[in-house]
Computed example of a mutant assay.
Amino acid sequence: MSENISEIDYKQVIEYALEPLIIHSQLKILYINRAAEIFFRASREDIIGASPLDIFKETSKSAIDKRILSAYEQPANIIEETIYRMDSTTVDVELYCHPVLMGNTKAIQTYVRDITERRLTEKRQKEITMQINELSATLVPLLEGIAVLPLLGSIDEERAVQLLDSIPVKVKEQKVKYLIVDFSGIYNLDSMVTGYIFKINNVLSLLGVLSIFSGLRPELALAAINLNINFKSTPTVSTVKDALHLLGVTYNETEINQQKTNKFSI
């Protein structure tokens, strides 16, 4: 077994690896593999002998120089950078460096991974999340004095705090008396965030606004109970339509208070 391993031509292994690979020493590129030629859009004759710092933006060169010096002794952490190809186009990459020996020469082997698609996916996801967050922080007016707050997607602690800060202000600006908080679009909510959401109800109550919860799934209700959150002062219904029906039938505030005590308390 050991004899077979010793016969492997490791230069061929790295030459035909799919990921770009650069070996450099003392700020001079000594070797690149075929994948690196394709990636950097230049022949190895054009690249070998150049400085590895040349591919980086001026704002990054100082930090990369220090990183290279430390990488002679131990592997460096994976970092993300925007670098230049030989045709001056830029590309987002992930870089991983570790020390190697070329004969008696200390060198650094750097793997380059193109993360352009990942960055684009992250950007699109961020844009979608922002759109959902904006929609979820929007009070949708239904009738005079009645609005609905549609909670959508996954709510983390930061977003819950934003809701707690913004919703009472919007309720006051829009002169909302009855707010339907619809949970049917929520697919991820932990106990900490659940606590923030129900704090909104307490704040609105102090402002004289009656909240009605709709679409409250069993697991969310259980999380609220585990946090000792009391539903007795808040009507809970299955759908927004049910909430509107409740308000339509008992539009008088006194009747609503009586209705929520009799039918919608837990």
Rank of each mutant, 00 (worst) to 15 (best):
N4Q: 14
N4H: 13
I5V: 08
E7R: 10
Y10D: 01
I14V: 15
Y16A: 02
S25N: 06
L27N: 15
A36F: 09
A36Y: 10
R41Q: 08
A42K: 05
S43K: 11
S43C: 06
D46H: 09
G49I: 05
A50V: 04
A50K: 14
P52L: 08
L53V: 13
F56C: 10
E58T: 12
S62L: 14
R67N: 15
S70E: 15
S70N: 12
S70V: 11
A71C: 09
A71V: 05
P75Q: 10
A76N: 13
N77W: 01
I78D: 03
E81S: 13
T82Q: 10
I83E: 04
Y84A: 04
Y84F: 15
R85Q: 10
M86F: 05
V91C: 11
V91Y: 09
D92L: 10
L101V: 05
N104Q: 14
N104I: 13
A107M: 10
I108G: 09
Y111C: 07
V112W: 03
R113V: 06
D114Q: 05
T116Q: 14
R119K: 14
L120I: 12
E122Y: 06
E122R: 06
K123Q: 13
K126H: 10
I128H: 03
T129F: 07
T129Y: 04
Q131P: 00
I132N: 03
L135D: 08
S136N: 02
A137W: 01
V140L: 12
V140T: 05
L142M: 12
E144I: 04
G145V: 01
V148A: 13
L149C: 02
L152C: 06
L152M: 12
I155P: 03
Q162G: 14
L163E: 02
K170Y: 05
L179E: 04
D182P: 00
S184F: 02
G185L: 06
N188S: 15
N188Q: 10
S191V: 07
G195R: 13
F198Q: 08
N202F: 00
N202I: 00
L204D: 09
S205F: 15
S205W: 12
L207F: 14
V209T: 15
S214P: 07
S214T: 15
G215W: 03
L216W: 08
P218R: 03
E219I: 08
E219G: 01
E219C: 01
L220M: 08
L220H: 07
A221D: 00
L222R: 15
N226Y: 12
N228P: 07
I229H: 04
K232F: 02
S233P: 00
S233M: 10
T234G: 00
P235N: 08
T236N: 06
V237R: 01
V237S: 02
S238V: 10
V240R: 01
D242W: 05
A243H: 02
L247A: 00
G248S: 13
V249I: 05
T250G: 02
T250W: 13
Y251Q: 07
N252V: 08
I256H: 02
N257C: 12
N257I: 14
Q259T: 04
